[in-house]
């Protein structure tokens, strides 16, 4: 008879609770830093994709295709282990000297991967804005970039906020892959507790609940934002 002895006390106290909390902290840090970076990168790619210059547009298309059609895990391995031969020796030395290369490589992979999805979100936001606005901008003498910067993007980004929140949740979930290169985020810590204590059920339940609470809190805030801030304004207009 395999009698699995559940031991919640072990996970919820002392050292192992500390591991879980530090894992959560790193998950949030990874997701937040990558979110900010991939927002700006996504913005640039989206603008490039809508540019009048054929080569700029083609460049953006290639970027989007390549990034969206390769697994995130492979991209993480590529940046962590594969970038070494492609970078100058001095860069490698500098990166290793930071002592944070695991975090940097994971952030880079997550940023690049997410930027492709954010670029698409922003583009659909832009599409929702009437064409006349662009034309009006051009006829009043603004350049393409000025029209984007001052007229189109501010509106598009506001419309993109719900999908962006969604991307943040995806990032929090996707950051679990960083465990494969030794970033001690939440899933890594759960696994670590499992291998130290052989108490897999408890460790993974704790981590799963943390992920669920995280998504509950964020979507909850989003709902409150939608109902309390967006809707009343919409009703007035």
């Amino acid at each position: 008879m395999l009698n699995y002895q559940f031991d919640w006390h072990l996970i919820l106290n002392g050292e192992y609770r500390q591991w879980l909390l530090s894992g959560l902290w790193l998950t949030l840090k990874l997701a937040t830093v990558s979110m900010i970076l991939s927002f700006f990168l996504g913005l640039i790619i989206a603008v490039m994709k809508m540019s009048g210059q054929r080569f700029v547009r083609a460049g953006a298309s290639v970027y989007l295709e390549v990034v969206r059609n390769t697994p995130l895990l492979v991209q993480i391995f590529f940046w962590y282990f594969g970038s070494f031969k492609l970078l100058p020796a001095a860069w490698n030395e500098w990166l290793n000297a930071t002592n944070e290369f695991e975090f940097i490589a994971a952030t880079m992979a997550l940023t690049i991967y997410t930027s492709a999805f954010i670029a698409e979100d922003i583009r659909s936001g832009v599409r929702a804005i009437p064409k006349e606005q662009t034309e009006a901008g051009f006829s009043s003498g603004l350049s393409f970039l000025q029209v984007m910067r001052w007229i189109i993007l501010p509106q598009a980004v506001r419309m993109t906020i719900p999908p962006l929140v969604n991307q943040f949740l995806n990032l929090a979930k996707n950051s679990s892959l960083a465990m494969t290169i030794g970033v001690a985020e939440l899933t890594y810590q759960a696994r670590q507790i499992e291998s130290h204590t052989l108490k897999g059920f408890e460790a993974f339940t704790a981590a799963t609940l943390i992920y669920l609470i995280l998504s509950l809190v964020i979507t909850g805030l989003m709902e409150i934002y939608n109902e309390k801030i967006l809707k009343p304004r919409g009703a007035q207009a």
């Binding site: 295709e65 059609n69 390769t70 697994p71 492979v74 391995f77 590529f78 282990f81 594969g82 492609l86």
Partner: peptide, 27 residues
């Protein structure tokens, strides 16, 4: 990669291309 220990760039680049070819066909 673990066995050869010297070609991470080549190996991960190669499988990225394989995934890309398969996925972009379906995209």
């Amino acid at each position: 990669n673990n066995r050869t220990l010297n070609y991470p760039t080549e190996i991960f680049l190669f499988i990225a291309v394989v995934y890309f070819v398969i996925c972009s066909a379906f995209t």
